[in-house]
């Protein structure tokens, strides 16, 4: 991979991109339905974002500004690795600023900064089938989607309630799309679920190993499954960010010594840095963005 000119724009050959593009369009036309696609073997391992990478590769134009995040952060190693891959193979500009990005590839988070029209959010998906851990057979789950038979999912959620007094699913929390398909939003924390529906951006989901692509067009209804007497509630650590003082962002808990000390920081690194740059300083934050990290 030393010579970028040896590979096609955005790595994939044109026929592969056409195949992926057709799958994306069908996914957009049938929100929440998992479209099978002939996932290719990418030069990174399955489970490390090959689905997201293929979807991004099929969407990128030379004018794009790409942002890649993993756990909300731009500087996690796998995010760095994927961003580099596209810098090398597509020559696109990259950015860490959510608002400046035209395409954002993500693993496990939706950025805090609301997305806008013209943006595409590409999710890396490990297991696209929301019913998979209730029924391991593809032949069965496909039938359930066809018949809109989601009883098994409701039984599972109800068992949670009877055992724990509440729905014990904290991430990868299923949603029903436009009243039809139950969809797996990828392992985002349920804190992010309310951002799935009614989003201004196009949301595309790629599962490489499982060979599935699905989509949420902008302004699409995506309702987290719940019961009238046990309504869905987004949740996060009951703290503010120790660096930027944000009261409403999703937080990572960081253990700071072996005496039980800990701090809470935004998982969205761009959001946190922008807030600090704008003068919002938490109890453990330094005035300048980046000054407290190296």
């Amino acid at each position: 991979m030393t010579d970028q000119t040896a590979y096609n724009f955005a790595y994939l050959d044109e026929q592969t991109k056409r195949m992926i593009r057709r799958a994306i369009l069908k996914g957009v036309a049938i929100p929440g339905y998992q479209v099978p696609f002939a996932s290719r073997e990418m030069p990174m391992p399955y489970g490390w974002g090959t689905g997201g990478v293929q979807v991004t590769a099929a969407c990128l134009v030379p004018e794009d500004r790409l942002k890649v995040i993993d756990q909300g952060a731009d500087d996690t190693t796998n995010a760095v690795s994927i961003r580099r891959f596209f810098q090398r193979t597509a020559g696109v500009e990259v950015t860490e600023a959510t608002a400046d990005a035209t395409v954002i590839q993500t693993r496990h988070r939706i950025p805090e900064t609301p997305l806008t029209e013209g943006q595409i959010l590409v999710y890396q998906v490990p297991i696209p089938e929301p019913l998979r851990f209730l029924e391991p057979r593809e032949t069965e789950t496909r039938k359930m989607h066809e018949l809109e038979d989601y009883g098994l999912m409701h039984v599972k959620l109800y068992e949670d309630i009877s055992r724990h007094g509440q729905i014990a699913t904290a991430y990868d929390y299923p949603v029903k799309v436009e009243g039809r398909y139950v969809m797996d939003p990828s392992p985002i924390p349920k804190f992010d679920n309310p951002k799935l529906g009614g989003n201004a951006a196009i949301q595309l989901f790629g599962a490489g190993r499982e060979q599935r692509i699905y989509a949420l067009p902008p302004y699409t209804q995506a309702i987290s499954l719940d019961f009238d007497d046990y309504p869905f509630a987004a949740s996060k650590a009951d703290h503010s960010c120790d660096l930027c003082a944000a009261p409403d962002s999703y937080l990572d808990e960081v253990i700071t010594d072996d005496q039980g000390s800990r701090m809470f920081v935004c998982s969205d690194t761009d959001f946190c840095a922008s807030r600090r740059a704008a003068g919002h300083i938490g109890p453990m934050g330094a005035p300048r963005a980046g000054a407290d990290v190296e």
Binding site: Q71, Y171, D172, P187, F191, A237, D252, S267
Partner: peptide
């Protein structure tokens, strides 16, 4: 790979 976002959700 990092899973601390999901883990944090479970932890809470």
């Amino acid at each position: 790979l990092p899973h601390y976002v999901d883990f944090q959700a479970e932890l809470e």
